[in-house]
């Protein structure tokens, strides 16, 4: 093989490697960061982590502290638990217990005037007080309409509904 042919072969090989390399390295797709103008939101409801049922003692203790901003003695908790055990319908037992607490002096509960002075704040405060979370927009809307539509729905009855709701039974 002559020297000329050998050089030609080397040039061809070089060109071949060069073009293949160029093909892979030079044609990079441009990266585009799309922005849709939407805020990041959590898709799961904010109460999704409440999977554990409160024991009677936990329910009693948490509710009393919530309504009176002070705690019960362990003896009182035991007595209330016994009263609960003596009633078959545990939902009814809780309802009567809550109605009893709301009727006691010293319960800390907003007046109707305070509620109506800033309804949205009352709703948000109630959700935080009982559920330790803010209401969703849908919850806030429903509550607003329900309270505005029914003058009988006092803070006392709203507190009762929250205290008896299934979500309040869990933590």
């Amino acid at each position: 093989m002559s020297m000329l042919n050998l050089d030609k072969l080397k040039v061809n090989r070089f060109l071949c490697v060069f073009f293949i390399g160029y093909l892979f390295l030079s044609c990079k797709k441009e990266k585009i960061n799309y922005t849709y103008g939407v805020n990041h939101i959590h898709l799961l409801p904010s109460n999704v982590n409440k999977t554990r049922l409160k024991s009677s003692e936990q329910y009693i203790s948490i509710l009393y502290t919530n309504l009176f901003q002070k705690s019960l003695s362990s003896n009182q908790i035991a007595t209330i638990s016994q009263a609960f055990e003596s009633v078959g319908d545990q939902i009814l037992a809780r309802q009567i217990f809550v109605a009893n607490l709301l009727n006691k002096p010293g319960v800390i509960i907003p007046s109707v005037q305070e509620m109506n002075a800033n309804l949205e704040k009352f709703i948000e405060d109630t959700y935080i007080r009982f559920y330790v979370r803010k209401p969703t927009q849908a919850e806030k809307e429903f509550m607003l309409q329900a309270i505005q539509a029914d003058p009988n729905l006092t803070p006392e009855l709203i507190y009762m509904a929250f205290a008896l709701s299934n979500e309040y039974m869990y933590y």
Binding site: P45, N47, V48, K50, T51, L53, E139, F142, M143, A146, D150, N152, L153, L157, I158, M160, A161, F162, L164, S165, N166, E167, M169, Y170
Partner: peptide, 17 residues
Amino acid sequence: PMYKLKYFLDNNFSNIG
């Protein structure tokens, strides 16, 4: 009305607890 409100609250929790 109290029960009505409670049922609404329970409905929002029905898939969880």
